[in-house]
Amino acid sequence: MSKIQEIPLEESQDSSFVASVKTVYNRHRIGINFCLSVVLALLTWEFIDFVFDDPDFFTGPVAVIIEFGVLIHEPRFWENIRYSGTELIYGFGLAMILGVVIGAAVAFSRTLDEMFSPILVGLYATPRSVAAPLFIIWLGLGIASKVGVITLASVFPVIINTQAGIKNVQGEFRMLGRAFNISFWSMLTKIIVPGSMPFLIAGLRLGYSRSVVTIMVAELFGAEAGIGYMIDHATQTFHVAEMMVGISLLTIMGIAGNEILKGVERWATPYRKTLV
């Protein structure tokens, strides 16, 4: 005869070590998991280095940090960071402004949408590496050509998401606005802007990632300085550690910007839970 077992509603309240560790883990789960994943990644990285054991072929995080310590004394290194940082700020900044303006234009005007959407889709599908040499011919080896490539690469997710966001609130919520007799200005500030905000920020995040990736592509075809240039140069002279420093810098730029945009998302849309 099986008797229904009583399941205690809560874990026993004993103050054992395991229980307190569990409580701490549950309280700071996200932070702890993040740290664990970073530590795990670094350990794996270091382990692969240990297996290869060839500094001309692969370097682990320890060697990269040491290399970083050497590089920070070179003005050239800081010049590279400043150069790529400027490219990123101008390139992504321009993509942000153009993306929102063009996205809003094609969302509000059906004629513009029908005229320009095929072109936009076509340009979106064009590989960035094709655009980079062209921009160098047009705008020279300096920052301008890189800004151009980065803008071109990252403007499309912003356009598409802005358009999708505005279209998303145009149906029923617009009807709600009309039903309650609100002005065009109120429609814009109370419905269209807040309603498309989650889409817009998602577009900015996609665009930002593309911007960071494109730094590398843009500088690969000829540049005066920059992190991509530094990586390329280090590759050709077999400085694997320096290459790794460059790659790490790009990764950090990517993560930092994404975290900032996630912060903006939490601030602008507090009613939603950030998923990714």
């Binding site: 029923e172 919520f173 009807m175 709600l176 309650f180 419905i191 807040p194 309603g195 849309t269 009613y271």
Partner: peptide, 15 residues
Amino acid sequence: PNKAVVFQQALLLPW
């Protein structure tokens, strides 16, 4: 303004 409507879907602004 002297007419108001209750929609089939609540159509509440999520924000």
